[in-house]
């Protein structure tokens, strides 16, 4: 092989390795390959309090991640938190599905757990989950506990 060929070969290998590294970062390191990018369908759920829930927090059924939170806003009329969820379209949920906000472990992040009900009909794109349970805020629980203690004596 002459000089020019070696030069071309090494530059080609360099560019290929660089692009391969970017591909690894995209598919192996980041979440590009995961379910939440396939579009899925949108659901709305209203909570009195979302605690530390954030956009991109996971949505799970039976502990398995099936989607993510896409938006959190406050309804200006009722002052409830309106949470938009994106759920992968392979999971169809009955209309009496309930949504709870739980914390993963004591210090972990918060997530939305869906519990499917038994209805025959399914939630459509843009549907609303009516049965919700807010996040448990530790200060409020402690306050309630102390108040009950004091009231009991």
């Amino acid at each position: 092989m002459n000089q020019q060929r070696i030069l071309e070969l090494s530059v080609g290998a360099f560019v290929a390795v660089g692009l391969a590294a970017l591909l690894v970062l995209a598919l192996k390191v980041s979440n590009l390959a995961q379910v939440n990018r396939d579009g899925g369908y949108h659901l709305t759920a209203r909570f009195d309090n979302v605690g530390g829930l954030k956009v991109r927090s996971p949505v799970t059924i039976a502990g398995v991640r099936v989607g993510q939170v896409s938006d959190i806003a406050v309804d200006p009329q009722t002052f409830e938190a309106v949470v938009q969820l994106v759920v992968s379209s392979q999971y169809r949920l009955p209309t009496d599905t309930s949504a709870q906000i739980y914390t993963a472990g004591l210090l972990g992040e918060q997530y939305v757990a869906l519990e499917p009900g038994g209805e025959e009909e399914y939630l459509q794109d843009g549907g609303e989950i009516r049965l919700t349970q807010s996040a448990i805020v530790l200060e409020r629980v402690l306050g309630q506990f102390l108040f009950n203690k004091a009231a009991g004596e």
């Binding site: 390795v17 391969a20 590294a21 970017l22 690894v24 390191v29």
Partner: peptide, 12 residues
Amino acid sequence: PLLAALFSAVGV
């Protein structure tokens, strides 16, 4: 950009 992508991938 190619070198930086390589750095991150090898670092991981």
